[in-house]
Design a protein around this nucleic acid. Sequence first.
DNA 1: GCCGGCCACGACCAGTATGAACGCAAGGGT
DNA 2: ACCCTTGCGTTCATACTGGTCGTGGCCGGC
Lengths: 240, 240
Amino acid sequence: MSSIRVLVVEDDPVAADAHAEYVRRIDGFEVAGVARSGAELASLLRLADAPGERREAVADLILLDMNLPDAHGLDIIRRVRGLGLPVDIIAITAVRDLHVVRSAISSGIVQYLIKPFTYSSFAEKLTAYQDFRRTLVEQASATTQAEVDQAFASLRPVTASSLPKGLSAETLSAVSRLLKNQVAPTSAVEVSEALSMSRVTARRYLEHLADQRSVRRTPRYGTRGRPEYEYSWARESRQD
Amino acid sequence: MSSIRVLVVEDDPVAADAHAEYVRRIDGFEVAGVARSGAELASLLRLADAPGERREAVADLILLDMNLPDAHGLDIIRRVRGLGLPVDIIAITAVRDLHVVRSAISSGIVQYLIKPFTYSSFAEKLTAYQDFRRTLVEQASATTQAEVDQAFASLRPVTASSLPKGLSAETLSAVSRLLKNQVAPTSAVEVSEALSMSRVTARRYLEHLADQRSVRRTPRYGTRGRPEYEYSWARESRQD
DNA sequence: GCCGGCCACGACCAGTATGAACGCAAGGGT
DNA sequence: ACCCTTGCGTTCATACTGGTCGTGGCCGGC
């Protein structure tokens, strides 16, 4: 089977090189090109769209950064989709804004990878896509519902993201969900009471989130005794 | 939370009625309209796209037939995507051609349902989409990779297919039957005692059901020791 | 009748929340 | 200005379960 041709779209040269290198390290993929801007990508894609030529893109998969100097990633997705090019898109970006994620998914990306990421999570996303492709290609021309479902299923991310020892994924998501719905800064005691867990546990998770810079931690003065820390969800996206 | 507004696009009146009725039967969904052709759909969507008005579609979700009298489903998807409308699309069609499936997926549909289908497989697809939406909406403006992955995961439900090695159908149905009749969340130990089987076995089946998202798994806080997980029935299983 | 796979069980090991004890930083009293 | 009080941060041992590995009985195939 031929390799999957990947187009890297990324304005930062360092990141672009890194992504390309990552792609080369995975079996079954090859780098079809690197575009540093929306315009570059457009010219690469228009080339294949010339009349008379076969209606085939120069790539099977695009690794798309959302923040490009001349265009927003969402607009690029829209343009590509409007042309009806048979390429899939994986968003690779530091943008964690909910609206962007939501729009990207409904515009038809197959994966969304948030920077910074490790090689293993990168490889995981790409091999998942590879599986997806293989399950579809392996079918004959007619498919059954089960086969379609299976193709979808291979796109499903395997729950990775290794947590520090001593933390469980369920508890972490419970704490962060609570904190996001809270408007006022919340103390460790308040969190522990709301989730009916111990103060120690609540604090451990809050501290972890603070380390990840997902929550902000500030002392609460005015009361007697040792100052209490209050935690609030960091709304703006992280600076990486 | 408000209902998910669904637009049914289907030229066969009988099928259109059936789909609409199916949608109404599922909690949290409402029928926003029915279009019998590509032109009808276009007029419905363009309405919302009028300048000056808020950039919001009249629907959140489109159930799209591929074979319409005046246009192909793929073209419709392309047009909708080109406009950048924030709607998701589920393809519901008898077309089982691999190329169409492939193109539809890469154009950004969230599900592909092959006609004819049972109500339960229809409901499964829609509730999966509902889960996906909920996981995203629950987040505040900023998200983490784990949360994005989880949202994706709800969109790609593991299909029944073959049971993972080591499970038997009888035991599985016994466990799920017990859980369905249970009102309060039940722990693995309680299940094992009720069915007089070993804790290990009970847990394995519960875990399998949790993977399938048929049961919800939450830690039970308050007691000392390692937290015990309790399982509660989440959704009707496919009983085709 | 023998053999191989399959499913459940028992037991060990690892893991995670809890309560208690200790330490620390700010307020308030003398 | 000093020290005491106060209440939470922090650490630690502990309890109890989850998860895994190897074993044993059962069933179907040869």
